[in-house]
Nucleic acid binder design. Structure first.
Lengths: 159, 159
DNA sequence: GGCTGGAACTACAACACTGTGACTCTAACC
DNA sequence: GGTTAGAGTCACAGTGTTGTAGTTCCAGCC
């Protein structure tokens, strides 16, 4: 009872896996972009616990930022994404056109959007996001370890 | 000799046509993003003159900004674009993948990029940019006018 | 129970970037 | 030469990032 293995990932590990700084993670949690869905922070000294799904979101945000997209737009996207991101992340593309967001599987629809669209299209293949997160988990916490933190990682990688 | 019709567009008109504020236009010119290619400013009281092509660039920047892309990335894109934007703007797509920029005509290549790309793709159909600029010129300076400023507009619209 | 060390969140401040508004100044135009 | 459009300058604000110091909680140990 004294040493229950904590579920999920601590803030620092989540940041490490997502490839962002801890300060970014903190800022994003504080401003409501991506927070820890397992345990919220409740004052100094408390601990945030991030789920595997949170890791995917963090990494997706990171990808969008790397692509030169303003955080402001990312916020709008994630209000949508949080509600519509199902478990079949593997072969879905996230499409942002202006202020509207879509999740699309086929390329044909996207070609249509390119043909008829007036504005800019931002396309993020979520499959790549998952790959990157999984690879990073394996890289940082190789399977041989018996520490509690690797358990949810292993479960998630096989998801 | 005293009243030679000025070529191109004044700063304020360029801003008006591109749909940006004058302060933005000023800031962009000052920081080297998109400047007036006909006449540079040379101190207080001088005048900038923008070419039709400049208008396209201004509008393209505006489109990218509206799509939530950071100005920093736009700067990088335009270092490339300024050198590679030919006259067949009509059916070309500007594709930004990570830090690399491409100009692509066909959709097939883009589909390929979506399939194999790890990061985010930003796609801007330049045809739309030209349409918007032309429409805005007609809207603001209808063809019936005989003012000098409409002349380059008419020439450009037929380009 | 109480002490102690470290992990991790919090508060505060500094900074760069991207503007925006107010104001000054001057080249262009009449 | 007087007027004026428009470039220059300065101060400031919002966002996002980062660093640093402080605070709190938890675990391990006695």
């Amino acid at each position: 009872m004294t040493s229950e293995a904590p579920e999920g990932y601590s803030g620092r590990r989540a940041a490490e896996i997502a490839g962002i700084t801890y300060r970014q993670l903190d800022y994003w949690a504080r401003t409501g972009l991506v927070g820890p869905s397992l345990t919220q922070a409740s004052g100094s000294g408390s601990r945030r616990r991030y789920s595997y799904r949170d890791l995917l979101e963090l990494r997706a945000v990171k990808s969008l930022l790397d692509a030169g997209i303003r955080l402001e737009l990312v916020r709008g996207v994630f209000e949508y994404l949080t509600q519509h991101l199902d478990e079949d992340v593997t072969r879905v593309n996230l499409v942002i056109s202006g202020t509207s967001v879509m999740v699309r599987t086929g390329e044909e629809e996207i070609v249509d959007l390119i043909r008829h669209g007036q504005g800019v299209l931002n396309i993020l293949p979520l499959a790549g996001v998952k790959e990157q997160v999984d690879a990073r988990i394996v890289e940082l916490y190789p399977e041989g370890r018996s520490a509690a933190e690797t358990v949810p990682a292993a479960r998630a990688a096989g998801n």
